[in-house]
Amino acid sequence: MNDRGRSSAVVIGCSTGGLKALRSLLGALRADLAAPVIVVCHRGSTDDREHLVELLAQAAPMPVQEPDERSRVRPNVVHLAPSGYHLLIEADETFMLSVDARVNFSRPAIDVLFESAAAVYRERLLAAVLTGANDDGAIGLKAVRARGGHALVQSPEEAEADRMPRAALQVAGADAVLTLAGIADRINQRCP
C-alpha cells in the first residue's frame, strides 16, 4: 500500500450509543496500531461519565487515557476527551483543552476536535463518525475531507442512533459507509 492509503492519526466521534460502539470498535483494533486514536464521546449525566476510561480500557488492546493539556499525542494510545472540555490538537501535535462555549450544545464537541485535527494531520487523518442522536461531527468531517483526510461513517442501519451518521453523510459525505467491524478493519489496514 502506498502512502496515499495510509493514515497517521485517527479521530472518532460519537454520542448516544457511543460507549457500546466504542467498546466494539476499539476491541477490534490491532494491539500494535501505530496511530494515535483520539475520541470524543458526548457524556450525559449518566453514571458512565466518570467511568468511561475504565470501561473503554477493558475493551481496547492499547492504553486508554484522558490527555493532560500540553501533552504529546502518542501513538498506540486511545486519548479520550475529558468531560466538560473541548479537546484540540496544536500544530506541534500536542493536546489543548478549552472551556470555550459549547458547540452543538456539546463540550467536548466532535466538530472542534475534527477541525483542529484536520488542520494538523490533513491527508494523514482518518476520521470516523459513529452512532449519535445529534448533528455534531458533520461539519468536522467536512473539514477532514476538505484537507484530503479519509472519512468513514458508521452505517446508519447499524447505528444505535442514526441521526449523527446521517447528518455526517448529508453534510460531508464519506469515503466509505461501514459497520463497526468494517471501520476497525479499515483503521487496522491504514495504520499498520
Partner: peptide, 9 residues
Amino acid sequence: YARASLKRR
C-alpha cells in the same frame, strides 16, 4: 495564545 482555540475564536 495557543493557536488551535484562538483560530476558532
